[in-house]
Amino acid sequence: MNDFFTVTGLTRTFGGVVAIDALDFAQKKGSIFSIIGPNGAGKTTLFNCISGIYRPDSGEICFQGRRIDGLKPDAIARHGIARTFQNLELFFRMTTMENLMLGRHIHMRTNIWHGLTMFHKNSTAAREEAEHREKVEHIIDLLDLQSARDVPVGALPYGRQKLVELGRALALEPSLLLLDEPSAGMTSDERQDLFFWIKDIQQELGVSILMIEHNMQMVMDISDRVLAIDFGKKLVEGTPEEVAAHPEVIKAYLGED
């Protein structure tokens, strides 16, 4: 039906505990696909399997027609999948600019010699550097990070650090972007901005987004499809309305009456 991104029969256990249990789903190109579920449902484990940090025990992950399960994280990045983390993974001593430039790593080509001898503006390395900088400046403008550009990321407030991580993921120019609780820890203003930016990223940059999110309002407003999981198994998958109407989801999120 669709060969953009599919997960089939994915299983991952830790010792005797089954974190993900024969999970299936498929995402359409260009869509926003949200995953919800209580803490410990296996959402982050799923992300770690997709981005190569964990090896799945069994099952398949296919991206643009290629199997990517079992590949190393750096290989998966080169396939065009970027991600953010629930607990930020940033280069805290580097500036926002440097963090974003590192996001462009897979697109850089200059060799050591050109880098070492970059003494004037027209050298190969300087020209390539300028190219990457332009792309990064574009992202900085998009996410309104100008004032943070030359500040070490460790010195920024939490909400902005989350944006830097989002920006770094965008700098990789991914086809698929995995966001692990992007709005967690943000103020309601920041959350509002984030909501629009995620929309922009989908619509203007054409990036498909796979997102774990606890804020139900945001999930319902922004998603094309929603998958609810619990104990590593699919509870229900469908449009936001379908999922919100499902008795198990109502039970999990609104409590039993």
Partner: peptide
């Protein structure tokens, strides 16, 4: 200044972050 040197610093600072940015 070099891609390799910057990648080395990145690995030293946070190898998980380096990895998911495509650094071997």
């Amino acid at each position: 200044r070099t891609k390799l040197g910057t990648a080395m610093r990145a690995v030293q600072m946070n190898s998980t972050a380096a990895r998911i940015n495509g650094i071997r």
